[in-house]
Amino acid sequence: MTAATDLRGFAVRPYSPWGIVRELAIVAAGLLLLSLVIKLHWMTNFMIFFILVLSFDLLYGFMGHLSFGHMLYFGAGAYGTALWLVYGGKSPLIALAVGMLAAALLAAGLGRIVMRTHGAPFALINMAFNEIGHFMIQSPLSGVTQGEDGLSCSADNIFGIINLYKDGWAFGFAAVMLLAVFALLRVLTASPYGILVRSIKENEQRVKFLGYNTFRYKWVTFVIASTVAALSGGMFTLVQGFISPRVISPFGNVDIIFAVLIGGAGTLYGALIGGTVFMLIKNFLPVLIPELATLLNMKLPQWEMWLGIVLLVIVFSVRKGIVGAVLAKWRQRPCGSTT
């Protein structure tokens, strides 16, 4: 067996501090390249979305639990942060921590229920909780959340310098947070814990035969994924200065699922690439379609329909996602080949 085959075959890549630094440099370079063609304030939104997709990938891609209710935790983070800024204090980092803590506690509680299920019941129970959360924000809690009107909030500068309402600072802040989340998940998924989570996805029963209480690991993973989703929700609040019940709407789950499917579930790079492709399609189609209609002098269907068609084509043509397809090609190369 050649060394090349060994490396190609290694399913869970080990990590080293330098390896992580190298990977972070690659991700950072990718972000900088994107920022050359995309405006900074858009890039900030892109990166917030990337963090959300990464969190979902941990739950679905790595552990195999497809949730239709992940936006609940994004929304909990967003509202937790906003409510602290409105009723608590103006420190953005404390507000972010409050948002994450609120979502973590919510996930810890609901996780005791939802992690006892899997497959369709898991997806649907999560959606039900998401819908309940959406309703609570809109109606019963409207006294504090302002319901449909939304909530405006403002935060002080971080360390007295970093003004998140300026595009450059917001971009830098989002980039640092994204790189930190990427590094955290990279270490986590390559660790023995990560190996266990992947194994649960493959065959939970067999993992139990090895003496593991799988429920405990699934619950911890659910809480981690939800807390990371809350981080992106809190960042959204800090950067936008305004939130409405849309941030907790179950419809948002479709975006995350598509992004993961496009990029390839179970790979962190897949989440980033899928997130990029999805955001590019979602942000540029509304501009391109009307221009095309004008150019052709004909009426074209709304951009949402084209978005659906494009996404279906991508998902069906690369079933394992972009990264999955590339990896499959790479593994099919003859042994010993170095190109």
């Binding site: 075959g9 399913a11 869970v12 023995p192 190996i195 266990l196 194994s199 493959e202 065959n203």
Partner: peptide, 12 residues
């Protein structure tokens, strides 16, 4: 655990 390496199967 087919996606894990042989060694990772033992590690687990």
């Amino acid at each position: 655990f087919s996606s894990l390496s042989v060694r990772s199967n033992i590690e687990l």
